[in-house]
């Protein structure tokens, strides 16, 4: 099991969970236990809670996992992930509504466009590091936002509304919430396992090496920029997947999805849950979405509370909820 805990882009060096006798598919014993709890919650959830709320939660959890792949394991803070989430959302919505494509094709199309955007923007942004990287990704995302305000296919201020969920593979009707729920859960789990697989692959190990000490990784012969770009693209692809799924769940794609506040929100979810932890982004998304759900009537106070959580997380518990629990139990979650 890992000796150090992943805490921050420049925090305690992390070692891989692999190599321990208890590990199965790269998951350690405690992680398997947590995974079992997560799977049980996903299975039981829709019978206890409102399925649409859970679907929203799963979409944002996937979004946060995608974001975490970049900041938690490569140490790159993107402040413009809304661009990929929103683009995935718009394209999937457009395909499903205007082109009448089936949901799986629409979702894939949204993911693909977000990925291409990720290739272009990642290629530009990795030219600078640290604080500049954050500002550049933010500027590029704002460019996408203004594009979406003006482009005809996005519907401007109205967005794309009444997007049909359609029939999966042309057969299964997704209109009932429970049907859509199982698709969303499947999409989330695919993304969730993919992130874990990437992190624990040899590629993932190099990613972490670059995070910890880029010059040394370069001196060992790794082309750091190629690794960063690939990590960026994978992260944006999953963000697009999350956005595309979200637009079919709610039947709506709007400017909110591409606005900078959305980029900030995914940072908050990941930070609160725990940067560089497997389960952190899921927990963070659950807390934030639940909070927004119950505090919606208080309007601008939600923004204030989000800001307060941001400050508290940065000042008091930089490991995040899951990171702190893991430290308390002396396990890596």
């Amino acid at each position: 099991m890992a000796s150090g805990s992943v805490t921050s882009p420049s925090g305690v060096p992390a070692t891989a969970a692999a190599g321990h006798s208890m590990s199965i598919l790269g998951y350690s014993g405690p992680q398997l236990a947590a995974l079992a709890v997560l799977l049980a919650l996903i299975a039981v959830g829709p019978f206890v809670l409102y399925p649409v709320f859970l679907m929203k939660l799963l979409c944002f959890a996937l979004f946060a996992c995608a974001f975490n792949l970049l900041i938690g394991y490569v140490g790159l803070l993107s402040f413009g992930h809304a661009a990929y989430f929103g683009m995935g959302s718009y394209i999937a919505g457009y395909c499903a509504k205007q082109l009448g494509l089936t949901p799986e094709i629409s979702i894939l199309a949204g993911t693909l466009v977000a990925t291409l955007l990720g290739v272009a923007f990642g290629w530009l942004a990795i030219r600078r590091q640290g604080i500049y990287f954050a500002m550049i990704t933010m500027g590029l995302a704002q460019m996408v936002y203004f594009f979406c305000v003006q482009a005809p296919f996005t519907g401007g201020e109205d967005g794309i509304q009444a997007i049909p969920r359609g029939r999966l593979f042309g057969i299964f009707d997704l209109a009932p919430d429970m049907h859509m729920y199982w698709l969303t859960a499947a999409v989330f789990l695919i993304g969730f396992f993919l992130v874990h697989r990437i992190v624990h692959s040899p590629f993932g190990q190099v990613m972490k090496a670059i995070r910890e000490n880029e010059p040394r990784a370069v001196s060992l012969g790794y082309r750091a920029d190629d690794y960063k770009l690939l990590a960026f693209v994978l992260s944006t692809a999953l963000a697009g997947l999350a956005g595309a799924t979200k637009s079919l769940v709610f039947g709506i794609a709007t400017l909110t999805d591409v606005y900078w506040a959305m980029s900030g929100e995914v940072v908050l979810m990941t930070l609160l849950g725990g940067l560089g932890t497997i389960f952190g982004p899921v927990v963070g998304a659950a807390v934030i979405i639940t909070m927004e759900n119950y505090l919606a009537e208080f309007g601008a106070w939600v923004t204030v509370i989000q800001g307060v959580i941001f400050c508290l997380a940065v000042l008091l518990f930089r490991r995040g909820i899951v990171g702190e629990i893991g430290r308390f139990l002396k396990v890596q979650l």
């Binding site: 921050s8 882009p9 420049s10 803070l77 402040f79 640290g130 604080i131 954050a134 900030g264 940072v267 930070l271 601008a300 106070w301 939600v302 923004t303 204030v304 989000q306 800001g307 307060v308 959580i309 941001f310 400050c311 997380a313 940065v314 000042l315 930089r318």
Partner: peptide
């Protein structure tokens, strides 16, 4: 700490003030 935490903290402060 890492410079990024400064960015995150001041982002949080901006949200509070604006809200």
């Amino acid at each position: 700490l890492d410079h990024l935490y400064g960015l995150l903290l001041t982002f949080g402060l901006a949200l509070i003030i604006e809200g």
